[in-house]
């Protein structure tokens, strides 16, 4: 216990850690945890957003659906994914894959590392608000377990729309908040340079969020990507086992209560 307190980080350090360029990419993470990943594209409505990667994979000999936000690796990819900020078509793709998982009884795993839903002209035109709203509405009654892991930034409604299932975990260096600390400081104090101060009052660190029961737990992180993948895998396998033992009805009641308490 003393050990943990000794290396306690400030909120600003956690934010910096969450945004670290060394974080794993979506593909590295998926392939590090799951086997036989088969990617599926498109939202069947308007397009295919590179900022959301999804498909079918295997975990502990079970067929599962995997979805992850993707920041991209090269400069070109990062432009294409808007640095990991999904478009409405990305959220619609995610929902399509979740509905598909439900039809075939597959649990869903979602990995979140996004500053938020993409704010832009095209996103507004194709209904960013509607896309997020629909995810929240539909996911509240999907009859298979949905487990989310925030492994970097968890920004606002864009993160919530991918973390509104049965269980949400965060890795040690990650954040989850109503808005970026910069935006928060700009709105409240009209000074985005006070972001560090904002990070502190926002209580966006995994520790604070766990205490408030916003999340289920924290996964330890280290520099070795392999070790992080192993830690995540262990946690989500255990979660899957527990959630799969519930009947669909029990699952949905539990999911309702999870948010009803706030």
């Amino acid at each position: 216990m003393v050990n943990i307190l000794d290396r306690k980080k400030t909120a600003a350090q956690i934010v910096a850690g969450a945004r670290n360029q060394e974080k794993m990419s979506a593909y590295e993470l998926i392939n590090g945890i799951f086997e036989n990943f088969f990617e599926l594209h498109g939202d069947r409505l308007s397009g295919d957003d590179a900022a959301i990667v999804g498909g079918i994979a295997t975990l502990a000999d079970k067929s599962v659906t995997v979805i992850a936000t993707n920041k991209g690796e090269s400069a070109q990819e990062r432009m294409l994914t808007h640095f990991g900020c999904p478009q409405p078509s990305g959220y619609r793709k995610a929902l399509r894959l979740i509905r598909q998982a439900e039809k075939f009884g597959r649990p869903v795993f979602i990995f979140v590392n996004t500053a938020g839903a993409y704010p832009g002209k095209s996103a507004e035109e194709s209904g960013q608000g509607e896309a997020l709203a629909r995810n929240l509405l539909e996911i509240s009654e999907v009859k298979v377990p949905i487990i989310s892991v925030i492994y970097g930034e968890g920004g606002s409604g864009g993160a919530l729309a991918l973390a509104c299932g049965d269980s949400v975990w965060m890795v040690e260096n990650s954040m989850y908040s109503v808005l970026s600390p910069e935006g928060f400081a700009a709105i409240l104090w009209k000074d985005s340079k006070r972001a560090d101060e904002a990070a502190e009052v926002m209580q966006l660190t995994p520790e604070k969020l766990l205490a408030q029961k916003v999340i289920e737990g924290i996964i330890p992180e280290s520099h070795s990507h392999k070790r992080v993948c192993r830690a995540i895998k262990k946690t989500i396998e255990q979660e899957m086992k527990e959630l799969m033992s519930l009947s669909p009805n029990e699952l949905l009641v539990k999911r309702y209560e999870r948010f009803r308490k706030f």
Binding site: A133, E138, L160, S177, L179, R260
Partner: peptide, 26 residues
């Protein structure tokens, strides 16, 4: 939008309300 002064708890309201809307709609 969400109330900044109540941070993450404001965000949670979105999912809470949506789930209640769905039950009503069902």
């Amino acid at each position: 939008g969400a109330r900044m002064q109540e941070g993450i708890f404001s965000l949670m309201q979105m999912a809470k309300i949506s789930a209640a809307v769905r039950r009503h709609s069902n």
